[in-house]
Nucleic acid binder design. Structure first.
Lengths: 325, 325
DNA sequence: CTTTACTACTTACACGTGTCAGCATAGGTC
DNA sequence: GACCTATGCTGACACGTGTAAGTAGTAAAG
């Protein structure tokens, strides 16, 4: 094996017959440097010819900051809606020259601090908040922090909070419009989902005063919750998501109720199973493309130290009317 | 702002009253170096006290290899089963000192080569194969490549291929045991899923000769497929996954058939919606913890240049019997 | 002719780490 | 006392990059 050395900018410089600095200036289009078109082309040609790719490590070491956007993925069940958004986000950030990397597990693997300290990312996208110390440490290290969801009061906007709230609001709104006065809220069983459930519930509360019950993903136990709601005179259920909604549907069926005549149900996410349910599930869907684009511009703004753009959440959330409510 | 400099190993050395080299030896437990317990403790104490975290960039630059395992996530819909596995994998690799990072989008964002050349990961975990040039380039750069799924013949074991095959086999086996001779295979509509669908179908073919039909996630169109199978005398369906299975269920219901009397269905994944379906869906589930552990040891082995361990796939795949088949 | 200004570069340093070669000191052997 | 070996540590270099500072050469201005 003939020593498979990495191709460095020095190789490019040698081939183009210029200094290494010139190569750097050309490839980074450094402003305030004048390079003749002739050498410019020679450098570009040489770089392409050699298949040169700059070392992220060296670049990061030098500049003190990498072009990585680190997304800390909590350990809650990541549905394919979220997966979709992350994919779109990755594409959007790539267009800005940023590399999106996701790290699953803000669990006890190792202190998350280790991860971001090691990577020195340009920005960190997190869903939950950090401790004050950690936040301060990141600020000091020059890492732009974007907290997407819940968090204590602070400078950081919580980018997803408004959309999540709006989801609950739209659910309640839809059921009200279709004539339901007493509403119920089907809260998820998994405590890890609380972070999403709280803002959604808050949104529903802004319009109605729903009776909240926890609904496990199990027909028999869901039936108990449904029976409770019936006793309360509830006729319409806002479910945390489509899966919980399916459980409510199953619970109602167990009790011999018909949907939506006896009990209307509306979910969230529009998962494939929603349209295949009996009856097909009315649900609230999010425009993942728009959301990803907004997150991307927010992150880019945060990296640049500019304030976050505002999100016109209205067109983001849409009700998909089917037969369950 | 008082110049928030990064804490380097030099800071630790100064505080511990030793040289930087000693610090490095202590913290990395470099073999073949003798350090007195006294200074060892002083160094560790100093490092902890300062909250020192080594710069991944510098370390990577020096050693030519980072401790990152890069997982290239294709753009197929990533269900929460997969999300789970990735989470477990991350934990398992962390225990080995490796940092798991996922990059969504092996799409046209930017040549994937850019990503791995930039990061210089210890290993790349991919689901699809690379071009020969790229494979060779990675080998030359010393990046351990693990191809998980489909790929042309080559040295790389395709780690997930056997389990996927086994899934299809178990489905067919279960339906045969319960008395179904003519089987059908419900193939997913989304072409991106082909990579998983092919080995699963191959597994089913090893036991039966199923009639393959594509089933869109739509009750009406699924009904057409079901009608076709009925005409063929098929009584049991192996579905690509639970969602496709739900579509088959919906199609059968549309035609007024009863499940499993007229048509038995078995899915894959055991998604939450499966147990909530009418009737509850029989399905095949994978032990995500075991799978993640196997992938982890495979990757660790690949990084160390050792051959991959074999997987006892038998206990990995399990049939969850419910009422649909 | 000198000064200034600009173009098109190059030289040199720093980023933080791993590691090789070297250097004292101490203890044992002949 | 001379020689060797092991212990415990330090000095110095290289990894590949970005960029501030400097330098020839040319052109315009005074």
């Amino acid at each position: 094996m003939p020593d498979p050395r990495r191709i460095t900018s020095a190789d490019v410089a040698r081939r183009a017959g210029v200094s290494r600095a010139t190569v750097s200036y050309v490839l980074n289009a450094t402003p305030g440097q004048s390079i003749s078109p002739a050498t410019r082309d020679r450098v570009l040609q040489a770089a392409a010819g050699l298949g040169y790719a700059p070392s992220a490590a060296a670049r990061t070491l030098r500049t003190g900051r990498s072009d990585v956007v680190l997304c800390l993925i909590p350990d809650w069940p990541i549905g394919n809606e979220m997966g979709n958004t992350l994919g779109n986000l990755s594409t959007a950030l790539a267009r800005e020259g940023l590399t999106f990397l996701a790290h699953p597990g803000s669990r006890d693997d190792r202190p998350i601090a280790e991860v971001w300290k090691a990577i020195t990312p340009a920005a960190v996208l997190s869903f939950t908040d950090f401790s004050d110390d950690e936040t301060e440490a990141m600020r000091a290290a020059g890492v732009a922090l974007v907290v997407a969801l819940l968090g204590r009061a602070g400078r950081h906007g919580r980018e997803l909070e408004v959309p999540q709230t709006l989801i609950g609001r739209r659910q309640a709104d839809h059921l009200s419009r279709t004539g339901h006065q007493r509403l119920g809220y089907a809260y998820p069983d998994d405590p890890r989902l609380q972070i999403f459930a709280e803002p959604r519930l808050a949104g529903a509360r802004a319009l109605a005063e729903p009776v909240v019950r926890t609904v496990p993903l199990d027909a028999a136990r869901a039936a108990e919750a449904v029976a409770g709601w019936r006793a309360d005179g509830v006729t319409g259920i806002c479910a945390y998501n489509d899966e919980v909604a399916l459980a409510v549907l199953a619970g109602a069926r167990t009790l011999g109720l018909t949907t939506p005549a006896d009990l209307a149900v509306i979910g969230v996410d529009d998962i494939p199973a929603a349209r295949l349910a009996v009856p097909p599930l009315t649900t609230v869907t999010t425009d993942q493309g728009l959301l990803a684009a907004h997150l991307a511009t927010t992150i880019v703004a945060a990296v640049g130290g500019r304030p976050a753009p505002s999100l016109s959440a209205d067109e983001l959330i849409r009700v998909v009317v089917r037969e369950s409510g």
